[in-house]
Design a protein around this nucleic acid. Structure first.
Length: 443
RNA sequence: GACCAUGUAGCGCAGUUGGUUAGCGCGUCGGCCUGUCAAGCCGAAGGUCGCGGGUUCGAGCCCCGUCAUGGUCGCCA
């Protein structure tokens, strides 16, 4: 039997200021190496840090070290002024006393150079070599921000009474119409990978009133664009509505505002490194679907009127318009035509043919779809009948409404899309650690 | 699936109207450098020009096919 101490260095966050003038021991990878006549510098990548170490010839020898070798160092922590924005912290450095090499790369030459300010490689190469390319400071910064979004979404909703749920990803039937769905063999029965936690969110509103989930969803669509993935992380929420479907819009605006504040607070280095502007939401602008068509026609002379959906170009134009006119980067587009929305969507009784649903456009891209759902059993039976759907196969879902359900609605926010738009990435795949698209299944 | 573009050294690229031995930057290797921070300076190695066929005295360059990648669109978050 051996008892370990719970309170030790692995259980704490390194506060460099506490080590000033003292020795510090760190284990990390060599991010970069500069050998000079008198010794040189090592940039050590360690947890969330990228620390500069100074190697004087008389103390340590760094001539035989190489980038991506893992070393354990002991040195004296001193204040410093460091210009390189990828080095965190930039006000301390370590004067090395000893270096122990723990491992070295097993190949002589790394396939790409991760030591430069920009990771200058083609997308395909970047993804093929993901275990290495993600080590570049700018790549790390993207996913530090993504991690912050993920946590902030959950924290904000938890604070206002939402309950986190984890719904199954292997399902009996698909939730959405239209989109293709991945099929798999489930003990000799047909099963699917979920396209959306939609049905489970709704079931759980009957239990908790407010729920959220952050999990992967799978789309077997053969799309091949810079804004689609076949597997992505969906930030979902579903809630009872006390004032109608606009509750959803207000909730989303607030959760986004919280996320952006969180990023500004905890990702200062990353924001500076990526040279990005984290957006501000201090007002909520909504436009009806038809109003968007009309506005784009009036202001840009592009006629999409009569189209049942927004074209990518139109999304960009309306975002441009809203920015100029209302000084905001966000526009909630409401009242999409019923025929473009799934069967569980609530129709606006005052605007027949149009739904109580919305998309959120941010910097020219759709990042959310949401809306109020049907909540009465009879309405489901009626709607599904009109759409010639097989009611029996939705039996377990329809229980929810049989047993009574309040007015409710929800939304789904694409994590990679939001990350990409915040970080100014032109391809959403860059906001996925290991993107899955029509051609890519590895790494 | 449609349309457009690209494929040249480990990586990112240039390569003129078809013409001797295919270039540049980074990385790698050797050397120099007492504070670098995209370090700098000197030197060296490294390429069947995606693949197959064709035109031509001659093809990285022109033509046909094929594969791969990127962009736009369809669909969507």
């Amino acid at each position: 039997m051996k008892e370990l101490k719970m309170d030790c260095e692995v259980s704490s966050f390194i506060d460099f200021s506490k080590y000033e003038g003292k020795d510090i021991t760190l284990t990390g990878s060599i991010q970069n190496l500069r050998v000079l006549g008198w010794g040189g510098f090592i940039i050590l990548r360690s947890n969330s840090y990228m620390v500069q170490c100074v190697a004087a010839k008389e103390s340590v020898n760094i001539e035989n070290l190489s980038v991506e070798s893992v070393i354990k160092i002991v040195g004296l922590l001193k204040t410093a002024t460091i210009k390189d924005k990828s080095i965190i912290p930039n006000n301390y450095e370590i004067e090395l006393k000893s270096i122990e090499v723990l491992s070295t790369p097993s190949i002589d030459v790394l396939p790409v150079d991760t030591t430069k300010r920009e990771l200058n490689v083609a997308l395909d190469t970047k993804f093929d070599l993901r275990p290495l390319t993600l080590r570049h400071p700018k790549q790390r910064a993207i996913f530090k921000i993504q991690s912050t979004i993920f946590n902030a979404f959950g924290n904000y909703l938890t604070n206002i009474g939402f309950n986190r749920i984890c719904s199954p990803k292997i399902v009996f039937s698909g939730a959405e119409g239209g989109a293709n769905i991945f099929q798999l063999d489930y003990f000799k029965r047909k099963a699917f990978l979920t396209q959306s936690p939609q049905f489970y969110k709704q079931m759980m509103v009957g239990v908790f009133g407010r729920v959220f989930e952050e999990s992967p969803v799978f789309r077997a669509e053969k799309h091949d664009t810079s804004r689609h993935l076949n597997e992505y992380i969906s930030l979902d929420l579903e809630m009872m509505l006390s004032n109608g479907f606009e509750d959803l819009i207000v909730t989303e605006a607030n959760v986004l505002a919280y996320i952006f504040d969180n990023i500004r607070e905890t990702c200062k280095y990353e924001i500076e490194l990526l040279e990005i502007n984290v957006p501000i939401i201090n007002k909520i602008v909504t436009m009806k679907f038809n109003e968007v068509h009309e506005t784009v026609f009036q202001n840009y002379k592009k006629d999409f009127r009569g189209e049942k959906d927004l074209a990518p170009e139109e999304e960009q134009l309306i975002c441009d318009y809203v920015k100029k006119t209302y000084d905001t980067e966000f526009v909630f587009v409401t009242h999409y035509p019923m025929e473009k929305r799934p069967f569980y969507t609530m129709e606006d009784k005052n605007d027949l043919g149009y739904s109580l649903s919305f998309d959120l456009l941010f910097r020219g891209l759709e990042i959310t779809t949401g809306g109020q759902r049907l909540n009465k059993y009879e309405d489901y039976i009626d709607r599904m009948g009109k759409l010639n759907m097989n009611i029996d196969s939705f039996d377990s879902f329809l229980q929810t409404f049989k047993y009574g359900m309040p007015p409710h609605g929800g939304l789904g926010l694409g994590l990679e899309r939001l990350t990409a738009q915040i970080c100014g990435l032109s391809n959403v795949k860059e906001a996925s650690l290991f993107p899955r698209d029509i051609n890519r299944l590895t790494p």
